[in-house]
Design a protein around this nucleic acid. Structure first.
Lengths: 346, 346
DNA sequence: GTGAAAGCGCTAACAT
DNA sequence: ATGTTAGCGCTTTCAC
């Protein structure tokens, strides 16, 4: 049957053609494409130019079969409904591309799947793996090290394991927000928790509640929204407002939850910051829209990406770098969803 | 220097080990992993099980070097600030994974780059390329065909070229929105245009303006926002409202623009739908939030993804499938940002 | 500085 | 049903 459409038959490979046409050997062609190979620069020029005309580039599969470097970075994400991540994903990919890495993308839809997805990713022997907002089981994590690969966790922290981690300083963020509420006269704080297991969620709560208890007697309430989503934040807040003591300060584990909280407050006939102050976490684009004007703790995306890329570079250079956890401070962006006390000047 | 960290030295390859241990040849190992190869099922079982224990999987590079199938799908995206696309990206990736394809991700940051990015993608000889919300030059497009690969355009239309295209029926959407405005008594329509070159943008405007002119005498105004972004929609609307004749109906080329328009209307001391009706396009998650409650034309994401995956399947099965353009109708989701006329019943 | 030869890990004829 | 052989497209010793 084999119709004519099977274009790739036997055309003596472009590389060989090229070699013949230029009167050199295939090795020379190869050397022309290896920046560090010894070759007369004129020869290289000649080869490279003609190759460009022909649209020839060395086959990366054949190449990595022998070099044992794939130039592949695998990014593993779980479901990214949070608008914070798409930007991170594209910018990270862009940066990695500039490093000469090609990105393979793996999404793990349900948490159970993550182990599976990791071994899938490992098949391509990536030079480096990056877990983006994905929680990876320690079983899967050890598979990675077994395979001799390195993994960088972006915005997830793996406790008790020696791994590369880049996160915003979530604990500090929680503290800063507690301070802000306290400094501005709030008394009855509540925390809306997103994905309970996520380390981001836990650290933010930890910083917030610990700082609060250091400075005040009241204890922050905590309500589980279950997910990082607008609707979840909305529902949690409705529940919160129906309680006996209405909170006057709500810290939501991320902006999506906080925006849900804002809507719930309005739905309840109240308003922020008049009746209740609301602060989120991330500083996604929507937070600054005038319809929301959300006070939030901004994640230092640029620095986080730079730090990640630096780690990747060091891994590429020498796998023996010791893993380190990097926590980068963000900054509180004050908008109108949280009240500011009238404090006398001077 | 070569420190000990260079874990991969010479361990006779797992495949050979396996073969020896099981007393079979490497070909048999290979056959066990080829679902359609002839091999005794017991032998296969035996191999597969032991392989699993050892964590062995065939090296995809070596494999595709000979099979000339890479099992790779390359997705090319441009900057995806529109929250519509992350979801598409992850779900598409997920579906492709289920098909046994691995996804390579390429982002083209500035438009000039797109040609470059395409040839980058082509190096890996993907079984199929998918352009996601990315405008690819026809030069780059022909490179793809030259390389014997197939490309599917998601939400972009390439005029005058025979390619695989899956889009929402943008023209129809524009018409439906014009009809809605007209049926509900609007008289002075305006269109907020996003990325002027994007085919989505153009088709929506075309459907909208043509239908309007069919049914009414007034001609829709059109203002260029330049990008698909909240701020751009905001600014465009401010300009629009400052004009001599204030529009009573605004169709924004996508939801992000429409949400910006909503904020601008409020900023101007007006309100939707009282003073002006606003309709967007996409139905992103935020559109349904009570703080926005945006009437919008919903893109049939599920169907669009399914259609794309179906095309990919057919390409995988036989490259000679004739290219086709698929335009899938969406549906108008009526919320409170656009007024509904009191029309008598019965 | 360059060519010849070997071989990366695998699959696909061709035997048996 | 399985083993043997050849070779995918490249890089890398090793000669020269």
């Amino acid at each position: 049957m084999q119709s004519k459409s099977n274009a790739k038959k036997r055309e003596t490979t472009i590389a060989k053609q090229l070699a013949e046409e230029l009167g050199v050997s295939v090795s020379t062609i190869s050397r022309a494409f290896s920046p560090r190979a010894v070759i007369a620069s004129e020869t290289r020029e000649k080869v490279l130019q003609r190759a460009k005309e022909l649209g020839y580039q060395p086959n990366p599969f054949a190449r990595s079969l022998i070099t044992r470097k794939t130039n592949i970075a695998s990014i593993i994400v779980s479901d990214i409904t949070n608008p914070f991540y798409p930007e991170v994903l594209t910018r990270l990919t862009d940066s990695l591309q500039e490093l000469g890495l090609n990105v393979m993308l793996f999404v793990s839809t349900n948490a159970n799947d993550s182990d599976n997805i990791v071994s899938q990713a490992l098949r391509y022997q990536p030079d480096v793996l990056i877990a983006l907002a994905a929680t990876v089981s320690s079983k899967a994590a050890s598979k990675v090290t077994e395979a001799g690969a390195s993994m960088v966790y972006f915005n997830r922290y793996v406790p008790n394991e020696s791994v590369y981690t880049v996160t915003c300083d979530n604990y500090l963020g929680g503290q800063v927000i507690a301070d802000f509420f306290l400094d501005n006269g709030c008394r009855y704080p509540a925390f809306i928790s997103g994905l309970a297991d996520a380390t981001t969620n836990r650290e933010r709560w930890k910083g917030f509640s610990e700082r609060w208890l250091e400075r005040a007697v009241s204890e922050p309430r905590k309500v589980e929204a279950g997910r990082f989503a607008h609707e979840a934040g909305f529902n949690a807040t409705i529940k919160l407002l129906a309680g006996r003591v209405r909170p006057d300060a709500i810290f939501a584990a991320n902006d999506l939850l906080a925006l849900g909280a804002l809507d719930a407050v309005q739905k309840a006939g109240l308003s922020a910051p008049k009746n209740v102050s609301i602060i989120g976490f991330d500083d996604i684009a929507m937070a600054s829209w005038s319809s929301h004007s959300l006070t939030t703790y901004r994640q230092p995306v640029n620095k986080m990406i730079t730090a990640t890329v630096d780690i990747v570079k060091s891994i590429l250079a020498d796998k023996a770098q010791p893993p380190a956890a990097i926590h980068i401070p963000g900054e509180l962006v004050v908008r109108s969803s949280a009240k500011i006390a009238n404090m006398g000047r001077g």
